[in-house]
């Protein structure tokens, strides 16, 4: 068991647009006989904005769980970059190596200010004796400022996160993801419960992010997906049903059958 090994960053390989950053190969997960993922294979490229859609129970959340190390698959491989085996790593190690996840329900630290939330999420040495004597450098402060501008919460930096609106909490979460300097961002239903204005802004934030990161968005809202997506993957019963541009997907017969019952 090499659970805690996360020094193999060399194996990520060259990070440039179009290179493979995340690769799921024949992954199967079953809960009491029910196959949540059924030999799922999927490739995500660097600096790509990928939308994943699928009905309830299609395996979207389970897929996220497998990638972040929360759930262990029965069979299959999950590879990060060129050759980092994610199945040998635990949750903190996977977070450290560059996979960030935003949850469906925004879970920010309510008792902390926006600034402190971002500070805690910042990439760095997270062993307890380092944090005991940690001081913030100017560079780190700049990075936090930068993230606050990007998510549009600069005016709130001293405010407790508990007073933020639902949409603002979602953005703060995205900001927290950003602070970890991830290569891949997994974003689970970012616009659920948002006002139209907030949805638009979220789309803008995610598009901006995909210029320097890979962004994987799981979402139900077709309107939203149409507005941001370049490439869409449709999951159905634990495996990929279709993949392609939004136009192709909408015209795809299998998809229409499953979704619209045609």
């Amino acid at each position: 068991m090499l659970l805690l090994e996360h020094d193999n960053t060399d194996n990520i390989g060259e990070l440039k647009k179009g290179n493979r950053i995340l690769y799921l190969d024949d992954v199967t997960v079953s809960f009491d006989g029910f196959k949540a993922l059924n030999s799922l294979s999927l490739t995500i490229e660097y600096e790509e904005l990928r939308c994943i859609i699928g009905a309830n129970g299609a395996g979207k959340s389970t897929m996220m769980d497998v990638i972040t190390g929360k759930t262990r698959p029965d069979t299959g491989n999950v590879v990060f970059g060129q050759a980092v085996d994610l199945l040998k790593m635990d949750e903190p190690a996977i977070a450290q190596i560059g996979i960030g996840r935003k949850f469906q329900k925004p879970t920010v630290f309510e008792g902390h200010s926006v600034f402190e939330n971002l500070e805690l999420a910042m990439k760095g040495d997270k062993r307890f004796f380092k944090t005991l004597f940690a001081c913030m450098s100017g560079e780190q402060r700049d990075k936090i400022e930068e993230a606050m501008v990007l998510i549009g919460l600069k005016d709130f930096y001293k405010k407790e996160a508990s007073i933020l609106s639902h949409g603002q909490k979602q953005w703060l979460e995205i900001g927290m993801l950003l602070m970890q300097d991830p290569k891949v961002l997994l974003v689970d239903e970012p616009v659920a419960g948002m006002t139209p204005g907030e949805v638009e802004k979220t789309g803008q934030i995610l598009t901006d992010l995909s210029k320097n990161h890979s962004v994987v968005v799981v979402e139900h809202d077709m309107e939203f997906i149409r507005s941001i997506a370049k490439k869409v993957t449709v999951l159905h019963e634990g495996s990929v049903l279709a993949e392609g541009s939004i136009k192709n997907i909408q015209e795809n017969e299998k998809v229409r059958k499953v979704y619209l019952g045609e």
Binding site: T107, G111, K126
Partner: peptide, 15 residues
């Protein structure tokens, strides 16, 4: 943060 939301802290990479 651990007191308020333990699992979230774990996902940030803290042990």
């Amino acid at each position: 943060a651990i007191r308020d939301t333990e699992s979230r802290v774990r996902f940030l990479g803290y042990k």
